[in-house]
């Protein structure tokens, strides 16, 4: 039985492992992230040290010898929550090296399906959240040079996958002039926009809040109006909670103004 390469959970780590595997004379059996690897009796494990140059080497192989689409697929599959990223991505990568540009045409092949499924999962949640994110206007204390507005539009989410980096650009284009924050409570990270106008003015930061932020003036009013609006929009003869739940899974409700009390 071949060895398993272990990487440090980072994307660069994964790429380093792919590159190492690519260059190795004896191919590894699998690739796994440290956090998802379970020690087996017979598994031999080799820890791969993350190396930016080797990671760049993998990017080069993927984008030039497979395709840019493949690069996109691998990155999205990496961000998707799954038990076995490393394995799924490694299989796809090896198959891609063999087939080149055509790899994404093998839509019936499990090695391709695995990565595509993860990618689609991420796409789907990203698109869903573009609609389901709810900003609340909160106080941020007296306005000063660091905090020119004195308020912030704050949204909390607990997505299945690590998507804030993918949804942030959408809001950066849409609300460039407002300070806002999208806080992923599950992962303790947030996308933060400084509200200084157009351009890339957002970044991802580590964050933990001790208390729920204080609502700004009129925030409750607009929440109330929104609920009232949705209530009177419903057509009673068409009530269909099953359809509602299928379109908008209950696990997202906690952070929706209209569904939580």
């Amino acid at each position: 039985m071949g060895a398993t390469y272990i990487y440090d959970d980072s994307f660069d780590g994964l790429l380093t492992a792919l590159f190492t595997a690519h260059c190795a004379a004896v191919k590894p059996e699998a690739i796994a992230a440290e956090s998802e690897f379970e020690d087996g009796l017979f598994a031999e494990k080799i820890t791969v040290k993350t190396d930016p140059d080797m990671a760049a080497g993998a990017v080069n192989i993927i984008s030039n010898f497979i395709s840019l689409d493949a690069m996109h697929n691998i990155f999205y599959a990496f961000l998707a929550e799954s038990e076995n990223h490393g394995g799924v991505i490694y299989d796809y990568f090896s198959f891609g090296v063999e087939k080149g540009r055509a790899v994404d045409k093998f839509l019936h092949d499990p090695r391709v399906i695995g990565v595509h499924k993860l990618r689609d999962k991420l796409h789907c949640e990203k698109h869903r959240l573009l609609g389901l994110i709810r900003f609340k206007k909160v106080e941020t204390g007296t306005a000063d040079s660091k905090n020119p507005a004195g308020h912030l539009y704050y949204a909390s989410i607990e997505p299945d996958n690590n998507v804030i980096g993918l949804v942030a650009p959408h809001f950066a284009h849409r609300l460039p002039g407002e300070p806002w924050m999208i806080h992923d409570l599950k992962r303790g990270i947030a996308a933060l926009n400084n509200g200084q106008g157009r351009g890339a003015n957002w970044s991802i930061v580590d964050i933990s809040l001790n208390a729920a932020p204080q609502s700004a003036e009129k925030e409750d009013l607009y929440q109330d109006l929104w609920r009232a609006f949705l209530k009177s929009l419903v057509i009673e003869t068409r009530i269909n909670p099953k359809l509602q739940k299928r379109c908008m899974p209950v696990r997202y409700w906690k952070h929706l103004v209209e569904m939580s009390k």
């Binding site: 698109h127 573009l130 609609g131 389901l132 959408h170 284009h173 849409r174 609300l175 460039p176 002039g177 407002e178 106008g197 157009r198 609006f229 949705l230 929009l233 419903v234 057509i235 009673e236 068409r238 009530i239 269909n240 909670p241 099953k242 359809l243 509602q244 299928r246 379109c247 908008m248 929706l256 209209e258 569904m259």
Partner: peptide, 28 residues
């Protein structure tokens, strides 16, 4: 989005919530 403005439109459209009748709500 225009300079100093708010908002833009998404080509593919976005649903923001679904009513108790299961209909997508996207606009006021």
């Amino acid at each position: 989005n225009t300079a100093g403005g708010i908002g833009n439109a998404a080509e593919s459209g976005i649903c923001h919530t679904w009513g108790a009748d299961g209909r997508c709500v996207s606009l006021l």
